[in-house]
Amino acid sequence: MNMLTTAMVPTVLATGDPARVDVEIAPKFKAGDKVTVVNLNKVDHNRLPAYIKGKVGTVTFDHGVFVFPDTSAHRKGPKPQHVYTVVFNARDLWGEAGHPRDRMYVDAWDDYLEHAR
């Protein structure tokens, strides 16, 4: 264990934990792709909110390669993969309760998405 000293504080606060991984990994998706969110129900850690599971959205941006929380939380390695922003129509998520003009943007890892059929 490497105890944080006062001398190290400025660097730690200025660096944090970028979670970005500097490896070349081919993205599974590109901006404009229609995707279906997987219906994941594991008891492990994940970053998939229930309200998008099984829903269809569109990839708007590829943010590059990041550590995968589902494995990282359980000391199973970084399993690096691309993170995308995916946009959903509010009506597709919430039915009549959603405003027809509104959009939801959610960030998702490769493993949370499949090409929509």
Binding site: R103, Y105, V106, D107
Partner: peptide
């Protein structure tokens, strides 16, 4: 248009 951004990842 209202755009809601849910910061689920490290962005």
């Amino acid at each position: 248009e209202v755009r809601v951004w849910d910061s689920t990842a490290e962005l």
